[in-house]
């Protein structure tokens, strides 16, 4: 039986411990097609992507779908990554774009009656008492009512704590548009909350005020 020549990949990663590899080294390994890099990229960035998706969409299963989509695209397009050191930003941008598309898709499908939104179940939000679950369910229903861009801007700013500049850069819009979107989302949410006695009276609920 002929002996197959061993295929030895030349590694661009110098670190002995792959988990200690910098983001740049990891990106270079992805570009070089090294097998370990995919698993390490997932391990390092999947929690961030999944959390952002879960908080934006309010659904664990939809967040998992977005996670798969983001990493599949990333691995397909890794060779096009021009600045390996900015891998994290690249993944952030991928995720936000995927979320933007998903929110638009859901909104449009809702209008066309092709999709019926699911009631927020609280799965993936820890152990919630019924009161808290009800309040968060109401809050999620209000988020569902926002326009996709306003909702995403609100989540990125208030939940993910991104700066206006970062949001503008990743969403490809101007800072003033981000500000307008943010103001609109906050005003609408506040108005709706004010009209709901349970939500408006939240500050009287001891367990909610730290």
């Amino acid at each position: 039986m002929p002996i197959q020549p061993a295929h030895v990949h030349l590694s661009l990663v110098v670190s002995h411990d792959r988990r200690a590899a910098s983001d740049g080294d990891l990106a270079r390994a992805l570009i070089a097609g090294e097998g370990w890099a995919m698993a390490e990229t997932w391990r390092r960035f999947a929690p961030m992507v999944l959390m952002m998706a879960k908080r934006t969409l309010g659904s664990q299963s939809e967040a998992e779908d977005i996670g798969q989509e983001v990493f599949q695209r990333l691995f397909r397009k890794a060779k096009a990554l021009r600045e390996p050191d900015s891998l994290r930003s690249f993944i952030y941008a991928f995720t936000i774009r995927a979320l933007q598309t998903e929110l638009r898709r859901k909104k449009l499908r809702g209008w066309l009656h092709l999709d019926h939104p699911a009631v927020w179940s609280g799965q993936g939000w820890g152990t919630l008492d019924v009161e808290s679950r009800d309040l968060l369910r109401k809050f999620h229903a209000l988020l569902e009512r926002l326009a996709p861009r306003d909702r995403l801007v609100f989540i990125l700013r208030r939940v993910e704590s991104m700066t206006l500049e970062e949001i503008a850069a990743t969403m490809g819009i101007s800072e003033s548009t981000v500000k307008r979107s943010m103001r609109r989302a906050a005003n609408r949410l506040s108005g709706w909350i004010g009209a709901d006695p349970d939500l408006a009276g939240l500050c009287d609920t001891e367990r909610w005020v730290r």
Binding site: L128, F139, V159
Partner: peptide
């Protein structure tokens, strides 16, 4: 505009995930 309630809800929504 009830922004305090909005902040509380947002924090709970964020921290609960």
């Amino acid at each position: 505009e009830g922004s305090r309630a909005l902040t509380l809800l947002t924090e709970r929504y964020r921290d609960g995930a």
